[in-house]
């Protein structure tokens, strides 16, 4: 399996970048140190044996879970309230988001998935657009939906939502029906 070989090579080549290797139904998922994702991707693409020459997709994930209210069973006004969250056992704020990279090697006909964890605020992920051009739109989508910023992206703009929109709709604390007034409609005469 070429993906396992890739993990071995990454361990040889870099110090402490592989945090975790998860295997599920013969599919390999490797958690990488966030700051070195670009170098890791460059290596996986250029290595003669591995040649992961295609980025199928770049995805985001929000790992936030709603808090339980100790006083009223199962009901809280704001299940994502920051203060409540900090009091309970919870996903730490510096590991809230994940960016997942699905890579494919045409030569070996195999996939590998990489993921990095991103903090709730302030942390930026190095962009892999310089490695694969196809990551361009995918990274813009992740930025649009989750607000994760990519460092070194040539054109980081919203891709689905209008440019004046101020929220990030796929975050778990964004209400399903949106925020009233954030998307104006034309006037009905």
């Amino acid at each position: 399996m070429i993906a396992q070989r890739a993990v071995e090579k990454l361990r040889e080549q870099f110090n402490d970048v592989v945090h975790e290797v998860i295997e599920f139904r013969e599919q390999l998922l490797v958690r990488i140190e966030t700051s070195s994702i670009r170098e890791v991707c460059q290596f996986l693409r250029d290595d003669e044996e591995l040649k992961f020459d295609m980025a199928i997709d770049v995805l985001g994930a929000d790992r936030l879970v709603p808090v339980d209210n100790p006083t009223m069973h199962g009901y809280v006004n704001d299940p994502f309230d920051r203060e409540l969250r900090s009091k309970q056992e919870h996903i730490p704020a510096d590991e809230r988001f994940e960016v997942i990279y699905v890579l494919y090697s045409n030569m070996n006909n195999e996939y590998i998935r990489l993921k990095v964890r991103v903090a709730e605020e302030g942390q930026r992920v190095p962009s892999v657009v310089a490695v694969w051009k196809s990551a361009d739109c995918a990274e813009r989508e992740v930025y649009d939906m989750f607000g994760i910023e990519f460092e070194g992206h040539p054109d980081l703009r919203r891709i689905y939502m209008p440019e004046y929109f101020e929220h990030y709709p796929l975050r778990k604390d964004f209400p399903l029906m949106g925020i009233p007034g954030s998307l104006p409609l034309p006037d009905k005469q």
């Binding site: 689905y160 939502m161 029906m177 949106g178 006037d187 009905k188």
Partner: peptide, 15 residues
């Protein structure tokens, strides 16, 4: 599509 991005009925902006 009961979601943030879809207008819940076009009668909100045209007759």
């Amino acid at each position: 599509y009961r979601t943030y991005s879809v207008v819940q009925g076009i009668d909100q902006f045209i007759p």
